[in-house]
Amino acid sequence: MSRAHAVAVARSWIGTPYLHQGSRRGAGCDCLGLLRGVWRELLGPEPEPVPRYSMDWSEPQGEEALLQAALRHLRPKTLGDESPGDVLLFRMRAGSVAKHLGLQARTGVDASFIHAYSGHGVIESALSAPWRRRIAARFALPMEND
């Protein structure tokens, strides 16, 4: 298991349609469903059941549900410590809860990440300045061969 393998698994989901709460490659997923599918392929069964969630990700209550789950199961990293295979959490608006995520595919000048995005499905996007400004946290998957 390697970071390159994590990126290859995430890329194998590209083209999967967007489906809120879905987590099946080729059939449909949302951003969390993409991470869940990558987790299952790389690490085995998911570490906890995922409760039903709305598209606003606890935003009205101000709860950091996605961030708290990431802290339970992933290894926190500093924002500047970029590696392929990192899990990125995003705040879509300043002051809002983290409610979007993706896996970093490339670093450096051509940095990119893979995510499931409403209206687009699973895609690889440039990690451009507007996306970088939204990064709330960076995590590593708990893999043995880092």
Rank of each mutant, 00 (worst) to 15 (best):
I114A: 00
E64I: 09
A136I: 00
G121H: 06
S112P: 01
P142E: 14
R36G: 13
G119P: 05
R40G: 08
A65P: 05
R40C: 11
I123S: 03
V50G: 12
E63P: 08
L89G: 02
G37Q: 13
G22M: 09
G95Y: 15
F139K: 08
E41H: 11
R132Q: 11
R52K: 14
E46L: 15
I123M: 13
S58C: 14
S83L: 09
A6P: 02
G28T: 10
A69Y: 12
R106V: 02
M143W: 15
H100T: 06
S12K: 04
H100V: 06
W131Y: 11
P49F: 02
E46W: 12
R132M: 11
G62L: 10
R106D: 12
A129V: 08
S128F: 03
R134Y: 05
S125C: 06
V97C: 02
W57T: 05
A6L: 14
P84H: 03
P47F: 05
P47K: 15
G102W: 03
S125K: 09
H73D: 12
E144C: 07
C29H: 07
V9L: 09
H73R: 14
W131P: 01
D86N: 05
G102M: 02
L66I: 08
M55G: 15
V122Q: 02
I123Q: 14
L43C: 15
F113E: 03
P51S: 13
F90P: 00
W131Q: 02
P17Y: 12
V87D: 03
S12R: 11
A65V: 04
L19P: 03
G108Q: 10
A105P: 01
E48Y: 05
D30C: 12
L19R: 09
S2V: 05
C31W: 00
L71D: 11
Y53M: 04
D146F: 14
H120Y: 13
V122C: 07
V97H: 05
H20S: 05
D110K: 03
V50D: 15
G108E: 04
A4F: 11
Q61P: 08
N145S: 13
A65D: 11
G15I: 06
H73N: 15
L35K: 00
F113W: 02
A98K: 02
S23K: 13
Q104D: 02
G28H: 04
G108F: 06
R91F: 05
H115N: 11
L79Q: 07
M55P: 03
I114H: 01
S23I: 12
L34D: 10
D56K: 11
T107P: 01
L88E: 01
I14M: 15
A69V: 04
T16P: 05
W131M: 03
E124Y: 01
